[in-house]
């Protein structure tokens, strides 16, 4: 059974000068417990897709949305705003690029944890929430949960904040986790640690993940399946191993060759626009 099923999603923004089309018929499917990556360059439409799934763009007046986004059996586009808001933070949650700025600087981590936990259980006492938060922080391998709960975001390191964000995002055991370039603002080794931690946790909880990234290395380690997006269109999709072993679409190949090698062969050259990139979508059916 699929937890998220996006069919023919079109998105445009109305501006003073006319309409800007952003997504041109996205199809994307995530099964229960599956980890799916959405890969593409900046401006390709990755993040807006996540915002549509969260139901945030539906409330933006200039956005024109067509197509169906079925989450857990219900079409998010057809829902009233109140119902969409009720899903956020309980059945779906999100992790962002910069963990430190995602925490309010005026409140302690513990304080914000309580608010997240009260999304599900409104009458949760301070003590109970503290205990629960301590357990959740232990899950993300934070050695001294009591200290972290009493700290402000700016007193903790980026990696620590990222762990806190992961713990918060998974606190209410959501069915779907959206990760928008998690940890891009962190350094590479910390990013690797936190991503593998996140992978272990979502596997344990059976959470589905939509992992948005431009970092192919991380995607390869993390995702079961990969969608490649270019200029608002899915150009290639398939199981991670098959897609990486045999990229068929011209854009996917360009994306892979664009990763700078640590051995130092200079920055690779990628054409800005190429007609080949606009070629039809390729789908890998099974591991080939």
């Amino acid at each position: 059974m699929s937890i998220l099923d996006i069919k023919n999603l079109n998105l445009a923004f109305k501006t003073l000068t006319g309409q800007v089309d952003v997504l041109h018929g996205i199809d994307l499917n995530i099964a229960a417990g599956e980890k799916v990556a959405l890969v593409g360059e900046s401006g390709s439409g990755k993040s807006v897709t996540a915002r549509v799934v969260l139901g945030l763009l539906q409330e933006t007046r200039s956005a024109r949305i067509n197509g169906s986004v079925v989450f857990d059996g219900q079409d998010i586009n057809a829902m009233p705003a109140r119902k969409r808001a009720a899903l956020r933070g309980t059945k779906m949650s999100m992790i962002f690029q910069d963990p430190t700025s995602s925490l309010n600087p005026m409140f302690t981590v513990g304080n914000q944890f309580t608010e997240v936990l009260r999304r599900r259980d409104h009458k949760l006492s301070k003590m109970a929430s503290h205990d629960r938060a301590t357990k959740l922080l232990e899950e993300v391998a934070i050695p001294d949960p009591a200290r972290v709960l009493g700290s402000y975001a700016f007193q903790l390191s980026g990696g620590m904040n990222q762990r806190v964000m992961i713990a918060m995002a998974l606190a209410n055991r959501p069915k779907l986790l959206l990760a928008d370039e998690p940890g891009t603002a962190l350094d590479v080794s910390v990013q690797a640690q936190t991503v593998s931690l996140m992978r272990d946790l979502v596997e344990e909880n059976g959470t589905s993940v939509l992992f948005i990234s431009h970092n192919l290395g991380v995607v390869r380690e993390f995702a079961d399946r990969v969608y490649v997006i270019y200029r608002g269109r899915i150009v290639e999709d398939g199981p991670t191993a098959a897609l990486f072993a045999n990229p068929l679409h011209a854009y996917t190949r360009a994306l892979m060759s664009a990763v700078p090698r640590i051995t130092g062969a200079g920055l690779p050259e990628v054409p800005e626009v190429s007609d080949d990139f606009l070629a039809a979508r390729v789908s890998h059916t099974e591991a080939s």
Binding site: A86, L87, R88, E115
Partner: peptide, 14 residues
């Protein structure tokens, strides 16, 4: 425009 506002919207805050 700060991240924590988006984060609050994402957990469904009004």
């Amino acid at each position: 425009e700060e991240g924590y506002v988006l984060a609050a919207e994402v957990i469904g805050a009004g």
